[in-house]
Design a protein around this nucleic acid. Structure first.
Length: 421
RNA sequence: GGAGGAGUGGCAGAGCGGUCUAAUGCACCGGUCUUGAAAACCGGAGUCCUGGCAACGGGACCGUGAGUUCGAAUCUCACCUCCUCCGCCA
């Protein structure tokens, strides 16, 4: 959500931003509704002022005078009831429109319609080459009894999976190395709820637009698709202290995604599953653009460094306008080389939001002048499992079907090669 | 799941239909006093919306939302959260 005053003063910039994001938002309608809102508010406030005055008179009035004032009050109230009804209707539309206004993309965000037009800004390592025919992660992991997809779908349905044996050890090793790496960067570990209330998703910007991709309980709660939701809502309706620097969380949670609209995509393996685990970086900082930019580079670089420790070739792209969400100002995706598909696949996504989320969540801090301001927020994937296992096993596979363990993970896996049991 | 109790300003806590522009204490800021500090004393402070260049003015906010009333922190209802006890449970 943006500031209505800002919207009023910068309607053209917001329209241009929405166009870049290929998001439709009726700004003109919002401005008209806002005019109506302000006028009505003024009228109602004036009548309330009179009501307050009269109420005080009633206490002191006696006999006929009292009866006269009571009569006048009755009329005043009738007029107010009508206006308040209208105000309620206007506010409903106002709220709805406000929630649909996208944040403005940064000037450095390229034009484009879909992820196909994201722009590569960095590559690291060379796509892995093999002097034998490489296998897919599905074949590798099944052969080494690291995963079971048949029983996965028998038990959990489409996209279900079990991790087994060395698959479990590998996932656990990634978690442990991640915890160490990101804590060293100054992030504070947190295990966050996945089962969350509606307002947390509204606040972080996943609702009302993204409802179809969320699992919902019979109590009206939701299963979040990322720890970002609960972690951002941690300080909902609070004032935070940013005097000693930004608040930096490394947050773990199970993640649930219905993947509505992705039915034909990635139907095999661990690339796209309904249920996975993720460490997420979540940051709150002062409401300064430069600080947001600095931390955006910071969180993205943290993840790049982690991938470099694993020794997996990757590239980083800056997402084009059409691939940005409602609240995002700018986003980087890190994509890892997947030999089986001979392409890079997304493993991480780092975005900053300015005060888009914190305004919805009502998270403020006191600035140096003593004014209350909405903080800025950012988030970035630290590392997801099991998706990361796809790139590990495919890039580290050997001619005999065994898998070398990335050196950084050896201490946590307890061996340097994964082979037949 | 059942039975009770409670949610008031940064914190503690009074108020239970009109003088609440919410007592009091602690914490906070300014001042007096002091070589300085502490103590004491005096004074000041919230958030949001809205009008105005400003000075200043209007409205709202006592968990949230509806309602009763000329008037609600105070009464009614629903919801949320917390606490106590019972039951169930990893």
């Amino acid at each position: 959500m943006l500031d209505i005053k800002f919207i009023r003063e910068n309607a053209d910039i917001i329209k241009a931003g929405a166009a870049k994001k290929l998001i439709t938002a009726d700004i003109d309608r919002l401005l008209a509704v806002d005019d109506e809102r302000k006028a009505l508010r003024q009228e109602i406030d004036n009548k309330r002022a009179e009501q307050n005055r009269r109420s005080n008179e009633i206490q002191r009035a006696q006999g006929d005078e009292r009866v006269k004032i009571l009569e006048a009050m009755k009329q005043l109230k009738e007029g107010m009831a009508e206006e308040e009804e209208r105000y309620k209707t206007v506010m409903e539309e106002w709220q709805k429109l406000m929630l649909s206004v996208p944040n403005i993309p940064d000037i450095s965000v390229p034009e484009g319609e879909s992820d196909a037009e994201n722009v590569e800004v960095k590559t690291w390592g060379e796509p892995t080459t093999f002097d034998f025919a490489p296998k897919s992660h599905v074949d590798l992991m099944v052969a080494l009894d690291m995963a079971d997809f048949e029983r996965g779908s028998k038990v959990a349905g489409f996209r279900g999976y079990f991790l087994k044996n060395d698959g479990v050890l590998l996932a656990n090793a990634v978690w442990q190395l991640a915890l160490k790496h990101f804590m060293y960067k100054g992030l504070k570990p947190l295990v966050a709820p996945s089962l969350v209330r509606r307002e947390t998703l509204l606040g972080s910007g996943y609702l009302p637009q993204g409802e179809e991709d969320l699992y919902k309980t019979q109590d009206g709660d939701f299963l979040a698709g990322t720890a970002e939701v609960a972690t951002m809502a941690y300080y909902m309706n609070e004032q935070v202290d940013l005097e000693n620097g930004p608040i930096q969380f490394l947050s773990f949670s199970p993640c649930f995604r219905r993947e509505a609209g992705a039915h034909g995509k990635d139907v095999r393996g661990l690339i796209r599953v309904h249920e996975f685990f993720k460490w997420e970086q979540v940051i709150l900082c002062k409401a300064e653009h430069d600080e947001s930019v600095r931390l955006h580079e910071f969180v993205n670089r943290n993840t790049e460094e982690f991938i470099e420790q694993l020794g997996i070739p990757y590239h980083t792209v800056i997402n084009c306008g059409g691939d940005l969400g409602l609240g995002q100002v700018k986003k980087y995706d890190i994509e890892l080389w997947v030999p089986g598909e001979k392409t890079y696949r997304e493993i991480s996504s780092a975005s900053y939001f300015h005060d888009f989320q914190t305004r919805r969540l009502n998270i403020r801090y006191r600035d140096a002048e003593g004014n209350l301001r909405f903080a800025h927020s950012l988030n970035s994937t630290a590392i997801p499992t099991p998706r990361i296992l796809v790139s590990i096993v495919e890039n580290y596979q050997q001619a005999d079907g065994t898998i070398r363990v990335p050196e950084a993970l050896v201490p946590y896996v307890g061996k340097s090669v994964i082979g037949p049991a």
